[in-house]
Amino acid sequence: MNEPVPGDHFSLVKQVIGTLDAGIRRLDDKTLSRLYANRRAALSTLQARHAGGGVLAFRRHPALWSMGLATLLLGAGWLVMHMPMPSPPASPDTSELDIQLLTGQLPPQVFADWSLVTRENVEAVCLTDT
């Protein structure tokens, strides 16, 4: 009781509060067990929250969550920048073939079938024609 009560009723308030305090100490077992069950149910929710730390803990701390996300994005960016890119396949050197075509060493039939534009096939065609 931290508040002043009307002077002539001070003892009354004291008696009422004293009786109420005594009353809650004599609650029946059924009520007490139900109150205990209520408390355990509430605390089990709390324990479940604490047990769900780790990833779930981030949910309750937006600053941590956004920092983690930013770190993840930066890491991904660094990886993209520094990852060795596969070079495009080198195009075959066809200069010798071009010279042979221009100088007439190869027949024009070569142009009829572009699959012949490999050294092996061209040589085979040339052999056939000659």
């Binding site: 109420l20 009353g23 809650i24 100490r25 609650l27 009520t31 007490l32 109150l35 209520n38 408390r39 509430a42 605390l43 709390l46 324990q47 604490h50």
Partner: peptide, 18 residues
Amino acid sequence: TPLEIEHFLAEVERRAYK
């Protein structure tokens, strides 16, 4: 802490019921 909450609930539950 969970312990503080438990103590608090244990202390207040009977009066809350009343």
